[in-house]
Design a protein around this nucleic acid. Structure first.
Lengths: 167, 167
DNA sequence: TTGACATAGTTAGGAGGCTAACTATAATGT
DNA sequence: ACATTATAGTTAGCCTCCTAACTATGTCAA
């Protein structure tokens, strides 16, 4: 996401603002710090998951299956919800099936389609990973009380509304 | 970064919290929304850069070179600051050199080392890209006044302190 | 009913990231 | 002085993502 590790100092931002009058230094600083913290969170999440032999892609598939009443879904629906292409989902499901965490069940009503089902092994995996993830996340966020969490959501939603202007 | 597009509803969070008592639902919601907004910002940034034929990696290299008084640096230093491996930096520099945006100059004092220099073409490229990027970013962040930007930085810094607990 | 189009999943090939190993050069310690 | 160790950059091979093309099946309208 944000690769850059060496965020600009106020001096550097000032130097760039001299050359480029379009620069809004506090906007730039907020933007970069937001991306920096979020990226470090994402890396930490991957590290936590990798201790259980998972990466984000496969983990989200398991969670999405567990969300369903029937613990089943289709590759297309999963791809859209996870946010990867259908081609990538094929690969994720190959890996999960090989690990015995999901199974492919051929559908009768539409023979193009396949139903993906969470196995008991997959559920057992989640029952180990999720408590660990939730415990760590609780600790990570304990510096923010409920008020601050609401504040954060509001600020983020203001930024979110601005995103179309960036594209 | 965060692939997941389908964030959990309060109902889903509640269902998971029933099964996993370790869950702190507002912590989870804040965490996921932060990652979601940051990821969308990053994607928007890539989109903006791609209009100029750049991606984040190469763009950061140009910016880091411009930050230097001498507009030169070394592959190792650039790799560390950009946040990629030295192997990846070799590839980024190959591409930038081929486009004429930087040059490799062999160092005399240490014959293992190479100095990377921003060319005038590279500077000209930045003089086109940076005003566009700054203008868009200003617009994107205009929903937050200075107070809110300070607030955001404080909240992010609290989360940042919690990251070690997540690893 | 059958030709055109749409949809589900997979496969093929490419981009960009990584680690590990390699080459060349420099620094260090006995 | 010379063997050892460290450092700079590159190369090779792997992973995960992507888009585009392909196969099979379903849908719809003339």
């Amino acid at each position: 996401m944000l690769q850059l590790r060496d965020l600009p100092t106020p001096e550097i931002l000032g130097k760039f603002a001299d050359r480029y009058p379009e620069a809004d230094v506090t906007a730039i600083a907020s933007f970069l710090y937001l991306l920096r913290v979020a990226t470090d969170l994402s890396i930490a999440l991957d590290t936590c998951l990798s201790k259980h032999g998972l990466l984000q892609g496969r983990w989200w598939v398991l969670i999405l299956l567990m969300r369903e009443e029937s613990v089943t879904s289709t590759p297309s629906a999963l791809a859209e919800k996870v946010g990867v292409s259908r081609a990538t989902m094929t690969g994720l499901l190959d890996g999960l099936e090989q690990s015995g965490l999901v199974t492919r069940v051929f559908a009768k009503e539409d023979r193009r389609s396949v139903r993906i089902q969470l196995t008991s092994t997959g559920q057992a995996k989640l029952d180990v990973v999720m408590p660990d993830y939730y415990r760590r996340l609780r600790q990570c966020m304990q510096g923010l009380d409920e008020d601050k969490r609401v504040q954060l959501q509001q600020l983020l939603s203001l930024i979110n509304m601005g995103i179309p202007a960036l594209i």
